[in-house]
C-alpha cells in the first residue's frame, strides 16, 4: 500500500518539534520524570504491536503473528523563549524486549534518550542501553536515587553497565524539575558533541527499520 504524505497547511508556521525518549525498567521513575517537566499531565498512550510467535498448538509449528498492546507515556513542553520556537515531546517507555518495535518509531529523528536507572534493578537497564548503542542514538544514563537504596557512585554504574567513557552518567531525583531539566541538558550537549564529531553519525538504517 502506498502511504501518502499528508496535506500541509500554508498558514502560520508551527513551532519545531523535537523528541526525547525516556527509557527504563518498571518503577524506574519514567512517568515521574515526564511529569516533572511536562506542561500536561502525562498521558498513557497505547499501541498495538505485532509479535511473531510460534503457535505451539499448530502441527507444523508455523509462525503466527500475535497482536499485543503496549503503553507508553507522553508529555510535552513548549519553549517559546528559545531562539526558534520549539516544542519538546517526551516519550516514556518501558525497557522490555517486546517494546523494541516501538523504540524504533520513537527513536527515529529523536534528539536522544535518557535511560533511567534504578540501582536496585540494574539488570532492567541492559536492554535499553544496548538498543540505543546499536542504533547509534545519543543517550545518557540517569541514576534515580531512591530513598533507602544504596547510593552507588556513577562510575560504579558505568562499570556495571559496561558504558564507554563517552556516555554521560548523572544522578537525579526524577521528582525534581531542575534535576530532570539538567538530565535533558546533559543529553542535548551530548547529542551536539555526537553530531559535530561525527557528521554522518550512525543513524537508524533501512534494514533496522525493516526489522
Amino acid at each position: 500500500m502506498v502511504l501518502h504524505t499528508p496535506p500541509r497547511s500554508l498558514v502560520d508556521a508551527a513551532p519545531a518539534v523535537l523528541k526525547i525518549v525516556i527509557a527504563g525498567g518498571f518503577g524506574a521513575g519514567k512517568t515521574t520524570a515526564v511529569r516533572a517537566v511536562s506542561e500536561i499531565t502525562p498521558l498513557s498512550t497505547e499501541e498495538y504491536l505485532t509479535e511473531a510467535s510460534v503457535d505451539v498448538d499448530s502441527l507444523a509449528g508455523l509462525e503466527v503473528k500475535e497482536t499485543t498492546t503496549v503503553a507508553f507515556d507522553f508529555g510535552r513542553l513548549s519553549l517559546p523563549d528559545a531562539p526558534v520556537p520549539l516544542e519538546l515531546f517526551l516519550f516514556g517507555t518501558p525497557g522490555q524486549d517486546r517494546f523494541v518495535e516501538l523504540w524504533y518509531d520513537l527513536s527515529r529523528g529523536a534528539v536522544g534518550a535518557i535511560v533511567l536507572v534504578d540501582t536496585r534493578r540494574l539488570e532492567s537497564s541492559f536492554t535499553p542501553v544496548s538498543f540505543f548503542e546499536d542504533l547509534g542514538l545519543p543517550f545518557v544514563v540517569a541514576i534515580n536515587q531512591f530513598d533507602g537504596a544504596h547510593r552507588y557512585h556513577p562510575e560504579q554504574v558505568r562499570t556495571a553497565l559496561e558504558l564507554p567513557v563517552s556516555v554521560p552518567v548523572v544522578t537525579c531525583d526524577a521528582r525534581d524539575p531542575n534535576h530532570v531539566a539538567g538530565a535533558l541538558l546533559t543529553l542535548v550537549s551530548h547529542a551536539v558533541k555526537n553530531a559535530s564529531t561525527d557528521p554522518a553519525h550512525p543513524a537508524p538504517t533501512t534494514s533496522l527499520q525493516d526489522a
Binding site: P83, L86, L185, V188, V192
Partner: peptide
C-alpha cells in the same frame, strides 16, 4: 536546532 533546544531549556 539542538543549540536552540539547549538555550530554551
Amino acid at each position: 536546532l539542538l543549540a536552540a533546544l539547549s538555550a530554551g531549556l
